[in-house]
Simulated assay, not measured.
Amino acid sequence: MSRLRKAGLGLTAAGAMAVALVGGWEGLRTKAYIPIPGDVPTVCFGETRGVKMGDTYTVAQCKEMLGKRLVEFETGMRSCLRQPDAIGDKPYVAFLSLSYNIGSRAFCGSTVARRANAGDIKGACDAILAFNKAGGRVVQGLVNRRAEERRICLGGEL
């Protein structure tokens, strides 16, 4: 069950937070690009699935894609959390942002998920900081994003 949308009512508070957090960090680019040398083609709000260089989308298509993918990543994230509905909205959204960025499989195998499942939400929030590399090297943009995800996870305002 998604905490991002209420049937027929649109986004929940958690859904609005997720869109703002992920959309803000990913940024909107309607033409495919390579974010970091050696990375895969990316478009819209960080979408990589099936993207080829030269692809272009409208803003409306990008927003629709983000909404669908957030629900998809939420499903993946929830599958490995023992009690996802017991997690507060802010940690939940921070975990979803991380999952969206690193992938559901990586999230499910992470210390973040293990600590959350053990009931150690603060420890799970702290573990977010470890995901600051791309291509084997620390990337300042990821350092900044992880610090913001951790801050929100620990109860900070979005």
Rank of each mutant, 00 (worst) to 15 (best):
R5S: 11
F107L: 12
A118M: 05
V19K: 12
R150M: 03
R3M: 10
M65L: 15
E74C: 09
Q140K: 14
C125I: 03
G103M: 01
V59S: 14
K52R: 15
A14F: 08
E26T: 08
D126L: 06
L11R: 14
A118L: 00
S2D: 10
Y33V: 08
V19N: 04
K52D: 07
T12Q: 09
W25Y: 13
L11V: 06
G38F: 14
K31G: 05
I87S: 01
L11E: 07
L66Q: 08
L154M: 11
M53H: 12
D126E: 15
G38M: 12
I36Y: 15
M77T: 02
M17L: 11
I152W: 03
I121C: 01
P37W: 12
A106T: 10
I87V: 15
E64H: 11
R151H: 04
S110I: 01
G155A: 10
Y57K: 15
G23A: 11
G123S: 06
Y100P: 01
R105H: 08
N132K: 15
D89A: 15
G8I: 04
A116E: 01
V51M: 04
K63C: 06
N132V: 06
I34V: 15
R151G: 04
G141M: 10
V19W: 04
C153V: 01
T30W: 02
L129C: 01
R82V: 13
Y33I: 10
P84N: 05
V71I: 12
A94Y: 01
C125D: 02
G24E: 03
A20F: 08
A127Q: 05
S110E: 01
Y33R: 11
N101K: 10
S104W: 02
Y100Q: 03
K6Q: 14
A124W: 04
D89S: 13
L11H: 05
R145L: 02
R69H: 06
N144W: 10
F45I: 00
G54I: 03
G156L: 03
G135T: 07
D120W: 00
S97R: 05
E64G: 14
K90V: 01
V19P: 07
L70W: 07
G155F: 02
G109S: 13
C44E: 04
A116K: 02
L154I: 07
G88W: 02
C44S: 09
A86H: 03
E72G: 05
T111E: 14
G109P: 08
G67L: 14
I128C: 05
N132C: 11
R82C: 07
P35Q: 14
N132S: 13
G27N: 13
T111K: 12
D85V: 04
E149M: 05
R114E: 01
C153K: 00
M53P: 11
G119Q: 05
A7V: 13
T42S: 10
L66P: 09
F45Y: 15
L81M: 12
E64C: 09
G23K: 04
A7S: 14
L142G: 04
T75P: 01
L66A: 12
T42V: 11
N101T: 11
L66S: 10
P35R: 13
M17W: 00
A7K: 15
E72N: 09
W25V: 02
N132P: 09
A20W: 09
A130C: 01
G38P: 12
P41R: 10
G76I: 02
L98P: 01
